[in-house]
């Protein structure tokens, strides 16, 4: 039995259909990697799961409870958001709060936790992402990689059942990507369930339990990373993987030069 099961998720912006009936199953402990060209709907899919966008159609089953994504009430959304953590492409740290404040905010304000307890949890979360020494820094005083690690700490502090990562390394300078990926690998080893939209093939290959290829608002193909990367069945998947690998190769070459 899956922990999360998305069925027939549809979403359009104006005339553009972004999601055209997406199905997705995630088991507890899964590391699902979603790949696909830009505009394929992967980010929108994640955002619909956390109700940052409203899907027009589709259901999400989470821990045996099925919710209609289009009509979910405020209470249902609040309950689901408790189970879901979100890590943003552009970090979205609260600019007026320190790193520690960023991680504590949800605990003290949304969960009404006592300040002392929240601070303990927040410090532990920041330690987990290797930023114990940056607790009192404001986002503007941190590098992109550090900001994203605070973003991850903010998500794990809430102790969600699944964390959604929306292109967590796309906004980072190349030399900062690895520190964020290392933190994510650690989480994966600890058994945190994750859904990751990314172009990082290396990460996908090493860590993912499941890889999904999306294009034009539908899931084209899914399987284990090895199946998908080395033996793609669909022509579209094959083309995309080839393109990505080529880009990575040229990036590496540039880095060497």
């Amino acid at each position: 039995m899956s922990m999360i099961e998305l069925t027939n998720v549809c979403k359009s912006f104006g005339d553009g259909e972004i999601l055209r009936g997406v199905d997705l199953q995630v088991d507890k402990g899964d590391i699902v990697v979603i790949l696909g060209p830009s505009g394929s709907g992967k980010t929108t899919l994640l955002r619909c799961m956390d109700f940052l966008e409203r899907a027009e159609q589709g259901t999400m089953m989470f821990d045996d409870e099925t919710t209609d994504l289009a009509t979910a009430s405020k209470q249902t959304i609040a309950a689901l958001r408790k189970k879901i953590g979100f890590v943003f492409q552009s970090y979205n740290l609260f600019a007026n709060k320190t790193a520690l404040g960023n991680v504590m905010e949800g605990l003290t304000v949304a969960r009404k936790m006592h300040k002392k307890e929240a601070e303990q949890i927040a410090r532990a979360a920041l330690e987990r992402v290797g930023l114990s020494d940056r607790c009192d820094y404001y986002p503007s005083q941190l590098s992109g990689g550090q900001q994203q690690r605070v973003g991850i700490a903010r998500a794990i502090a809430m102790n969600p059942e699944v964390i959604l990562f929306d292109e967590p390394t796309s906004a980072l300078d190349p030399e900062l990507v690895s520190e964020v990926l290392a933190v994510m690998k650690n989480l994966a080893e600890d058994g945190v369930t994750m859904i990751v939209v990314t172009h990082e093939m290396g990460f996908a290959r090493q860590v993912a339990t499941k890889a999904i290829f999306m294009d034009q608002g539908v899931v084209v193909e899914q399987g284990t990373p090895t199946e998908l990367f080395d033996h793609p069945k669909e022509e579209r998947t094959r083309q995309f993987i080839r393109k990505i690998l080529k880009e990575e190769l040229s990036e590496n070459r540039q880095a060497e030069e």
Binding site: D50, F51, L52, A78, R81, K82, I84, G85, F86, F88, S90, N92, L93, F94, A95, E105, G106, V109, A110, R111, R154, A155, M158
Partner: peptide
């Protein structure tokens, strides 16, 4: 994004 980050950690609009 500040609003969205707040929602993602469970805060409501007024908070």
């Amino acid at each position: 994004g500040q609003m969205e980050a707040g929602y993602s950690v469970g805060m409501n609009y007024f908070q």
